[in-house]
Design a protein around this nucleic acid. Structure first.
Length: 215
DNA sequence: GCGACAG
DNA sequence: ATCTTGTCGC
């Protein structure tokens, strides 16, 4: 069964393997992943979508389901959502150049948020784009594109608070794996027409549909 | 001991 | 995450 201390040790050990450098390869395809739940049946679903970076045209979509493996424990979302995400990932013919994840990357108590965990185990460039942070932050200026750095409890910068829409609550961008802070923020801003980047909005919408037989 | 705490 | 449509405001 799940052991909190073992889990912490694993996260800390894995965090040393994270790369904060992007290959520099031009990005042609962008992926996004999100999960949804059916608590009445204890099921979790993961959807991965891949879009063409400029046209935002949907190229691929895969989905998988599983029993919910663990209750939600702050700081351990990776052990809850990664398994079903890996299951869906195996259905992909080819991976995207970069994968967006709904959650944090290195902006995590042990620098091992869901985005970093997924990126590391899949050897995939990932970006964490969270709707709320683990750490305190200073709100960026009100205009779209404004940013403010935020730090973990050790004083290390772990991401950028990014205003993707003027006057709207910012998002919290942090590298997952094979990614750097500024490139991550640049990509998220480029893809954001609304608060969240389009690929994540699509993945979220599709994940929701899984447990809703209607339209 | 108490409150915080991605989704 | 999820329960849930319309409504008010930029």
């Amino acid at each position: 069964m799940f052991n909190l201390n073992k889990a912490k040790e694993a996260q800390q050990r894995l965090s040393n393997l994270i790369s904060l450098e992007y290959s520099g390869k031009p990005i042609k395809t962008i992926g996004a992943v999100d999960c949804s739940y059916d608590f009445s049946r204890q099921l979790i679903a993961a959807v991965v979508v891949i879009l063409e970076i400029n046209s935002l045209r949907l190229l691929t979509e895969v989905e998988s389901q599983d029993r919910i493996p663990l209750p939600y424990i702050p700081g351990f979302l990776n052990f809850r959502e990664a398994p079903v995400i890996f299951k869906a990932w195996r259905k992909l013919a080819s991976p995207p150049d970069v994968l967006l994840v709904d959650g944090n990357g290195i902006a995590h108590p042990r620098r091992m948020g869901l985005a970093s965990y997924i990126g590391l185990l899949l050897d995939q460039a990932t970006i964490g784009c969270a709707k709320s942070p683990f750490f305190p932050y200073q709100p960026p200026a009100i205009e779209r594109g404004s940013t403010s750095p935020f730090y973990n409890d050790r004083g290390e910068q772990v991401g950028l608070c990014l205003r993707t829409r003027t006057g709207i609550k910012p998002v919290f961008v942090s590298p997952g794996h094979k990614m750097d802070i500024s490139t991550a923020a640049r990509i998220v801003l480029k893809l954001a027409r609304y608060r969240l980047p389009e690929p994540l909005r699509l993945a979220h919408q599709r994940a929701q549909q899984v447990f809703r037989s209607k339209s």
